[in-house]
């Protein structure tokens, strides 16, 4: 079996094992897996309303996945997508309600604000990594909680102790009557187009620009990149900043599309951490991210139908997602298994 086939097989096998183990968990817990999975299926593809909302759910997942994947390509682990997303969310919501502008300026401005806010939050980690050799994983974890508490405090300050900001102006909203009409009043919005554009942007940066070549080179081998005259530090900071930009835009999707405001959060949204799963499953490639985000976004939204339709707690899907992450991360053992299998076949 060629390497390429194995690389494709690892995520697919992981998904299949994840779903099988999920079914076993349901069976052991006294639930009916067939009923569970069919409830999941209708929760995703049931009618135009659920399809609309599924696509809406996929949107921030694509951006969170891009953020993690982009950093990974430069050899960085951005586990702080969650925090960057929260900061971006707040920035977009603030620009959305605090200023009034024509739509053609307002939406781009709110998007840029979110991207800049997320980029800044990630820049901190990149800067500390480049200047002080601090491991970005720990810094971004710490920045996640810092972001959560700061965003909550700012929302409280902006609203005199309220729980959510004002609703954003119509001119900053990504929602449209057209999308709502064709999807039976779902909250589908134009964010999906922005997300897909960003996928193209990531592909363009990595594959078609000198800078992208340098970023990847640093990811492959820092010493070699340094020897070739590339500035490792500059590329680390840049990679984190771009990664944070994607994450911030993910927050903008929630602010300008789904929720139309920013509210106080008791805990994380989970999108940032699921972004790690998305990137991992998509092998950190732009196209792979679309695939991973579609899978996990669909599962996540479809799971909401499970308690009603089948009486199964929706957390079963989070269990499945966590298991898939385990299996993809343990790809080494799946590879070994596959190689043994193909050797056996050759022997016959």
């Amino acid at each position: 079996m060629s390497n390429r086939v194995i690389n494709l097989l690892v995520p697919i096998i992981s998904i299949i094992i994840g779903l099988i183990v999920g079914a076993l968990v349901m069976l052991v817990s006294g639930y009916d897996p067939v009923e569970g999975y069919s409830a999941l299926w209708t929760g995703i593809f049931g009618d135009s309303y659920t399809i609309g909302n599924t696509i809406r759910q996929i949107t921030p997942y694509i951006l969170a996945g891009l953020a993690v994947a982009f950093a990974f390509r430069t050899g960085l682990f951005n586990i702080g997508v969650e925090g960057q997303l929260i900061i971006g969310w707040l920035a977009a919501a603030w620009v959305g309600y605090a200023i009034e502008l024509p739509k053609v300026i307002h939406i781009p401005l709110a998007l840029i604000a979110a991207a800049a806010a997320g980029a800044f939050w990630a820049f901190i980690a990149g800067f500390l990594k480049a200047k002080f050799k601090v491991h970005e994983v720990i810094v971004t974890i710490m920045l996640n909680y810092t972001a959560l508490y700061i965003a909550n405090a700012i929302i409280r300050n902006l609203t005199d102790g309220g729980f959510k900001t004002e609703r954003i102006h119509e001119s900053a909203s990504l929602r449209s009557d057209f999308l709502r009409d064709i999807t039976d009043n779902s909250s589908l919005h134009y964010g999906i187009i922005i997300a897909l554009l960003m996928v193209a942007l990531m592909w363009f940066i990595l594959e078609k620009t000198t800078r992208g070549y340098e970023l990847k080179a640093v990811g492959f081998n820092q010493n070699a990149a340094d020897y070739a005259g590339m500035s490792v530090n500059k590329n680390i900071i840049l990679a984190m900043t771009i990664s944070g930009m994607f994450a911030g835009l993910g927050g903008a999707m929630e602010a300008l599309g789904t929720f139309q405001n920013a509210s106080i959060k008791a805990g994380f949204t989970g999108i940032g951490f699921d972004g790690i799963a998305v990137a991992l499953l998509g092998a950190n490639t732009p196209l792979g991210v679309i695939f991973g985000a579609s899978l996990f976004g669909s599962l996540k939204y479809g799971s909401l139908n499970m308690p009603n339709a089948a009486g199964i707690p929706e957390e079963i899907v989070s269990i499945i997602i966590a298991l898939i992450i385990f299996f993809v991360a343990s790809g080494y053992i799946i590879r070994v298994g596959l190689q043994k299998l193909s050797k056996k076949k050759e022997g016959q």
Binding site: S29, F77, I79, V137, F273, I276, A277, L280, P313, E315, I316, S318, I319, I321, A322, L323, I325, F326, A329, S330, G331, Y332, I333
Partner: peptide, 22 residues
């Protein structure tokens, strides 16, 4: 299985919460 330790730790966090609430 030589998995990335950070990734596997993230999975533990997701799994711990999901299993407990489930």
């Amino acid at each position: 299985f030589r998995a990335d330790q950070t990734v596997s730790g993230v999975a533990i966090n997701l799994l711990g919460l999901a299993v407990s609430v489930f």
